Amino acid sequence: MTERVPHRNPWLVLAGFLGVVAVVAVVGGLAASSAKDVYARLELPPWAPPSSLFGPVWTVLYVMIALAGWCYWRTDGETRGFAAYGIGLLANLLWTPLFFEGGAAKAALVDIVVLDVVVIVTIVLFTRRSKLAAALLVPYLGWILYATALNTAIIALN
């Protein structure tokens, strides 16, 4: 007779996903303490968003990223999907310190291109088990592709 592992409370797991993503957001926020000043000093393309837009957009995206992970978990998601998700969170975490605190716009560009690819892979892997989980990541992908173009333009202009 095999012993059955008790199921985890899904609401606690959701809180865990929200917590992990919140750590990424907070670390990014701490690394972006001078972001407003740095952003204001940069030569920006005419299509660059105002700095006041970043906080609200990222807040919504981070909630969606956490919900995507949770929805995938609810399907007993496979390890590859979670590995891609985790790598994406790490790449996300690295971009802000590279760009704003490190002054390393080129390294940040490499990081965000990696993030673009990892999020695409994550969406593909999530789609196999949860179309909702994958769909929750699509706005995030759109935003980081836009950010990739912005990062590239900033390098070219500065």
Rank of each mutant, 00 (worst) to 15 (best):
A156Q: 09
A40S: 12
G142C: 03
E101S: 15
S130H: 06
L14H: 08
G88E: 01
S51E: 14
W143R: 13
F17G: 05
Y39Q: 14
W143E: 09
T79R: 14
L42D: 03
W73Y: 15
V119K: 01
R129N: 09
Y39E: 15
L157P: 11
A156F: 00
L30H: 01
V27H: 02
F17C: 07
K131Y: 01
R8L: 14
V23G: 12
E101K: 11
L61D: 12
G28F: 07
W58H: 15
D76A: 09
L125A: 02
V57C: 06
N151G: 06
G77M: 04
V119C: 00
L12P: 07
A48E: 13
V23Y: 07
V63F: 06
A107P: 00
F54Y: 04
V21A: 04
Y62K: 05
I112G: 03
Y85K: 03
E101M: 09
D116G: 08
E3D: 02
A31W: 01
A48N: 15
A68S: 14
S52P: 15
T75Q: 10
S130V: 05
A35Y: 11
A133S: 11
T59A: 07
D37E: 15
F82M: 03
T59W: 04
S130F: 10
V21W: 00
A156V: 13
R80S: 12
R8E: 00
Y72C: 08
L30T: 01
Y39V: 15
E101R: 15
A84N: 06
R80H: 05
P50L: 05
V24D: 03
V124Y: 14
K36T: 13
V124A: 09
Y72A: 01
R4H: 04
V20Y: 03
A66D: 12
T96N: 13
E78A: 02
E78Y: 10
W143L: 11
P49I: 07
I155G: 00
L115F: 09
R4A: 14
A32V: 09
Y72E: 02
P45L: 05
V117I: 15
T152P: 01
W95D: 00
A134K: 02
Y62F: 15
L98Q: 04
I65H: 01
L90Q: 08
L98R: 04
A133N: 09
G142F: 05
A135W: 04
L98I: 08
N158Y: 00
G86Q: 14
L14C: 01
S52H: 02
S130I: 11
D76C: 00
A25R: 01
A147P: 15
I87S: 03
L109M: 06
E43T: 14
F17D: 06
A134T: 06
V60W: 05
L53A: 14
G69F: 13
D116Y: 01
V117N: 00
R74P: 05
K106I: 01
L145E: 11
F126H: 05
S51F: 10
F82S: 02
V21N: 06
R8T: 10
I123N: 08
G69P: 08
A31Y: 09
L125S: 03
I154D: 07
S34Y: 03
A15V: 03
W73D: 07
R128Q: 14
W58T: 09
A83T: 09
G142D: 10
V121F: 06
A134Q: 03
D76P: 00
L44Q: 11
A135T: 10
G86P: 02
A133W: 09
A105K: 00
S34D: 14
P49G: 10
L109R: 02
L61Q: 05
P97Y: 11
I154R: 05
R4I: 15
A83F: 12
